[in-house]
Design a binder for these strands. Structure first.
Lengths: 230, 230
DNA sequence: ATAGCCGGGTGGTGA
DNA sequence: TCACCACCCGGCTAT
């Protein structure tokens, strides 16, 4: 039996029944306590979620943290959503929220998402994955999207990060001041010449700009005293 | 209605009902005779297949040719399989053949595969796709900021929004320059005095700061022509 | 993730 | 000057 037939499984996945099915398919199942991911086969890491859990982790934003960590550690992160897709819709979620989540997971996080109807098919999917060479075929299709040409968006997002400034106002400010630098050099009076920006907002912005920074990031060297624990 | 809300649809997709649903969602549908793909929305090309057709094109290997051509022409090829997945399994196909095909399409052909239960959800998916813009991820999701330390975190997040600057570097920059304003007033030379910031990063930052803004937000008055049509 | 609601800032108009 | 109002922002909630 080759190493290809091995799969490392997170212990908490035991009750799901999937590991048993994998054994029946002839794989060697190796239980561990995994920090990230549920199933590891050479080259691939699989996170399995039943539809209910998927929704939960969507509502709590947890799914995106998990996706991030998965992507950081493994080169081919896979998300398996197990159960009836239609059931997710009927659950009452706004469809646009569902598809929005799925598309950002696939396009922005580089996650490959599969839907399986039940545990048996989840096992089949993992089993099939095992025999795929992690990389093959002529051109490496996975093109790391280089971060060029997003200039305007970055400028806009930067400015719209100021308190009281959204996309609309950021656009107006940049149109008026031309560059990001001039926006961030402006005085409160100058800022409030922009339509939609009044004294209050302008002063809030200036406060952010001119208040001396008080480092609050943990430095490795420094011993940190307990400040607000009981 | 802006160009973002446009979708080019292959004429043969008309009877599927999806184009009508897209219209109801407020999109402008533009029928053409497409050589490859069924739905084109800025940046994405969608091939839609009902489960039956998917099986057929799987048996005949046609699906791989289509996937290849789709990938050749568009940067973000999407395959939508519409209908009940479980039905495919029950149809008698060997599960391994199904998952093998899907994984090959995903990993080797770089195709993004989505499963939708019906036409309505297919429409929702395409609709959601329309507004996605390639934005880059800096790291784990930004934690919700508590009201208290809002000032420092805002300063930090502002600076860390600069290209190549994460939380750690932002902290160093602010510690060195004291205020946000001075950071955003600094020259490339001054910026690169910060440890971890080199010439390249410094220049990228300066570019963001000093490049005159080209408004790209939709103005209500302005008529905008379709951007990626031939 | 997305949509919707609501409270509050902003600036313009008309009384 | 003041009061009303349309617009924009951002925070919260439900799905």
């Amino acid at each position: 039996m080759s190493a290809r037939n091995r799969v490392v499984v997170d212990e908490r996945e035991k009750p799901s029944g999937v590991p048993l099915l994998l054994k029946e398919l002839g794989m060697m199942v190796d239980f561990r306590l995994l920090e990230v991911g549920d199933y590891i086969v050479p080259g691939y890491a699989v996170e399995r979620k039943e539809v209910g859990d998927f929704l939960k982790s969507l509502y709590s934003h947890r799914i995106f943290d998990q996706a991030y960590r998965l992507r950081e550690v493994y080169e081919n992160p896979v998300l398996v959503v197990e159960g009836d897709v239609a059931q997710i819709i009927n659950h009452g979620i706004k469809p646009q929220a569902l598809w929005g989540a799925l598309t950002t997971l696939t396009f922005d996080h580089g996650l490959k998402v599969f839907f399986t109807p039940d545990q048996t098919q989840t096992a089949n999917l993992i089993y099939t994955l095992r025999r795929k060479k992690p990389h093959l075929l002529k051109g490496p299709v996975v093109k790391r999207t280089r971060k060029v040409e997003v200039l305007e968006t970055t400028q806009l997002q930067l400015v719209s990060f100021l308190p009281g400034i959204g996309l609309k106002l950021a656009d107006r400010m940049l149109t008026k001041f031309q560059t990001v630098r001039t926006v961030f050099s402006a005085s409160a009076a100058e800022l409030s010449t922009v339509r939609g920006v009044g004294k209050v907002t302008a002063n809030r912005i200036v406060k952010i700009l001119d208040t001396p920074y008080r480092p609050f990031l943990k430095r490795p060297r420094q011993l940190k005293l307990d400040e607000n624990n009981s």
